[in-house]
Design a binder for these strands. Structure first.
Lengths: 144, 144
DNA sequence: TTCCTATTTAAGAATTATTATTATTTAAAA
DNA sequence: TTTTAAATAATAATAATTCTTAAATAGGAA
């Protein structure tokens, strides 16, 4: 999603987040990215336009965004953490060949799972979030 | 699952895995553990009875077990990888309070998901494994 | 606007998880 | 047993992330 710096500043103010340039730029970069970037990748991406933003700041800002529910961590088999600014419920498809993570919207599945667990529940467990991850292989001939 | 050293040796032989004491002990420890240990935790657990097994060997052995489909990686929000020797299809419950990971068997759900995707599929994607992770809170009064 | 103060940042050191290197040891086949 | 390829211990190296600290800055108060 493409967000303007002004849009982000407003959003931060509403949530009581102090609005600094590094933060705004980091969030903008994450929101624009479609491929669930790591801290390192975001750091690289913003270098061009905003050099001098340190990697440590990227990490701290991403943590802050997760705290404020503006982003979430995406865990993978790799040894680094990736981030997602899409906060609605969606599936992650992990391509075992390219290591790419794709989002997959499926409202029917989401409803099915919610319905299933609201009816049945899990003994002694309060469900907060159901995350479905599918491992497999992307069959697209062209990898955009 | 409690496995004797002899049982494991036999299992290794059937799979063409060279049977060394470090390997057997590491796999035994993983199989016995109910809480999806990290490499570090396994290393610690076997120290008592088998000191001198190096951490690097634990890592290499766990990798090997994953290759041979005797174990799988469990990814979490933490910054380290954890392992699971339970290879049937099951759900992971992540307790946000205790950080514990619990297994949850639900054949009905597994069948439902398999049925759903075999009927509908995902465009341009070959499904290998469906993993459901549920975040929430364990409500057990006593944490065994 | 200007000043104040708590928060944020940059820089780089430190820590932690994991992998690589290499000399030595060992399982198991001959 | 002897042989040999594979596995191990020890430790150095690397990669991701966090910590430390002094300097910079946002946003409220005057």
């Amino acid at each position: 999603m493409n967000l303007s710096l002004t849009q982000i500043k407003t959003q931060f103010q509403e949530l009581g987040i102090k609005s600094t340039l590094p933060r705004v730029v980091i969030y903008q970069s994450l929101a624009k990215s479609m491929h669930h970037p790591s801290a390192e990748e975001i750091h690289l991406a913003i270098q061009k336009k905003y050099p001098g933003v340190s990697l440590a700041t990227v990490y701290k800002t991403l943590d802050m965004l997760v705290q404020k529910s503006l982003a979430s961590k995406v865990v993978t088999n790799e040894d680094k953490v990736r981030y997602d600014s899409k906060m609605d419920n969606h599936i992650h498809l992990y391509c075992e060949k390219t290591q790419k993570i794709m989002d997959y919207e499926d409202q029917e599945l989401a409803d099915m799972l919610t319905g299933y667990f609201s009816k049945k529940g899990i003994p002694n467990f309060k469900i907060n979030k159901i995350q479905v991850n599918i491992n497999g292989e992307s069959k697209t001939t062209k990898n955009k």
